[in-house]
Amino acid sequence: MSFILAALDAGPTAQSVLDTALRMGELTSTDVEVVHVTTGDNQPVKLRTDRAHVPLHLIRGPLEPALLSAVEAPEVVAAVLGTKAAAGDRRLLGTTATHIIERSTKPVVIVPPDFVCPGFFRRLLIPLEGTEASTQPVLEKLFPLLAADVELIVIHVFTESTVPAMLDHPWRDLEILGKEFLTRHLPNQEASIELRHGPAGNQVAEACDEHGADLIVLSWSQDSTAGRARVVRQILGSVKLPILLFPLATPR
């Protein structure tokens, strides 16, 4: 039996992580279970899981390996984690979240600490670079997961290589470019698209605000060192929404 695995700690952000996991469960018609790496007092976590009527798995540390092992269990469809790094924090992610997303083969939702979870997820924002490598994980793993009606908004922020060479009539040509982008990268999927130009993080953040997005979907290389995954880092640093990360490659 598959489930979404929420990793809760005893801190105050755990509720938003659990709520996000429950929304993900609704989105994917999947059960939700919780894992907590026990440090002694499990009551706060147990209270939350009892209230939400979701099973709780207590496991022993060390924290990061234990959590990773739990996430990698075959029944886990996706994991939901919190991070201690708020928007604007130079670290972008806490060490535990970083450890998991850099290694896990599963999709992982990172929930920012100041995120207030809505009652349901209606609108997903999907920034796409427009390369086959980055689109494939989204195409192959996201859409099979989705079970509920949800609006998909694709954002493509022009890069040096994709900025249009010519726009005879910008409004017409951008519409064609957008349709073509969707046809090539998300064939046979119902989605709308926005084409933008500027720093990717800023543009995605603006788009989130303008559209009232609930969740951002990204694929990434699992390499968050300096110089790599630039766009993902920009987005992580700019948005206040949960981000669903699909890994491109096998983890380290």
Partner: peptide, 10 residues
């Protein structure tokens, strides 16, 4: 080159 040839030729 324009990314819009799918809509027809120029």
């Amino acid at each position: 080159l324009t990314g819009t040839t799918a809509g027809g030729l120029h």
